[in-house]
């Protein structure tokens, strides 16, 4: 008879490993943008309904993260940035990640429909489908435009938040969607420039791998130029005002300067200072999104005092 020792068994997952499946850092962005979408909408929502709606939007985003980790476990194991994720490290079995993803998808969609409305739940269902199927399964390994189209999945949360309050979509929610959508490519390509070997090791057709680094720098500049009018246009809608306009001009100007500096550099210069500019622009892009959405929130908060809005 053979004894089975604990050390022979696969490493057992703790509760935190299942939380990691839900990509909590991405979730924090989802929570924030969805909350802004909900709070700036012209229809008030009961605070409890608002909190629960945001919770289920975040849970839905987490579910799509778990499905992504299930599907991408093979390439995650090849990249340094993702090697320690629960599935490639062996702590969580792929089937468990699939089960968690599917179960949480169902729970979050049904509960959002019951909490808020069917439009918000439909948008959440589409977001999960888009991220798990269109991005992870289809485009990520097929085209270097993966980030561009896949970015739509991350752009839906403010639209869902708006739909929770209003039960529909509008120019304002479409522009909030467009800000995140246009912001995603320069944000990720700046990361891809200094995470040099990862994507090529995993054979993911990142723009840096397929079209070269000079082309990626040009793409960053072009998308940042396209982002600016979207951000400024949002400031002229009912969710904007003088404060948002000033913030949009400053933030987009700053981002454009960063993208211009990235475009002007070549690899020799970047290697010399260890990608200092690329890293700085990547860091700034995180602040950009946070501050842009915070500006909408400030505008909405100023409105009752007669200061916000046009």
């Amino acid at each position: 008879m053979t004894d089975i020792r604990i050390s022979d068994l696969p490493v057992e997952a703790g509760f935190g490993d299942y939380v990691q499946l839900l990509k909590p850092r991405v979730m924090s962005l989802v929570v924030f943008t969805a909350l802004v979408g909900l709070l700036v909408a012209p229809v008030p929502v009961h605070p409890f309904v608002a909190i629960v709606s945001i919770l289920f939007i975040a849970l839905g985003a987490g579910a799509s993260g778990a499905l992504n980790m299930w599907w991408d476990a093979d390439i995650d194991g090849l990249m340094q940035r993702t090697r320690n994720r629960p599935v490639p490290s062996g702590r969580v079995q792929p089937g468990e990640a699939l089960g968690v993803g599917m179960a949480l998808s169902g729970i979050s969609i049904v509960m959002l429909a019951l909490t808020a409305n069917f439009v918000a739940a439909g948008l959440l269902a589409f977001t999960i489908f888009f991220y798990a199927v269109v991005y992870s399964m289809w485009l990520k390994r097929l085209t270097p435009q993966n980030i561009v189209i896949g970015g739509a999945a991350g752009a839906f949360p403010p639209m869902i938040g708006w739909a929770v309050a209003t039960g529909g979509v509008s120019v304002e929610s479409a522009l909030m969607f467009a800000i995140v959508f246009m912001w995603t490519p320069p944000h990720f390509w700046a990361l891809a420039l200094f995470m040099k070997t990862d994507y090529s090791d995993a054979q993911v057709p990142m723009l840096t791998v397929t079209h070269g680094r000079k082309s990626t720098r040009t793409h960053i500049l072009v998308y940042t130029i396209l982002l600016a009018p979207v951000g400024i246009a949002a400031a002229f809608t009912s969710i904007g005002g003088p404060f948002t306009l000033a913030a949009a001009i400053l933030l987009n100007g700053w981002f454009l300067i960063g993208a211009w500096r990235i475009w002007q550099r070549d690899e020799v210069q970047a290697e010399a200072d260890k990608y200092a500019v690329e890293k700085a622009v990547f860091r700034f892009s995180l602040y950009y999104l946070f501050l842009h959405f915070a500006a909408f929130l400030v505008e909405a908060a100023l409105r009752p005092y007669g200061y916000g809005g046009w």
Binding site: H46, F48, V49, V52, L55, M111, L114, T115
Partner: peptide
């Protein structure tokens, strides 16, 4: 959450 939602929706 379900209990809280029930209370809020019924009161609404």
């Amino acid at each position: 959450i379900v209990f809280g939602l029930t209370v809020v929706k019924v009161l609404a």
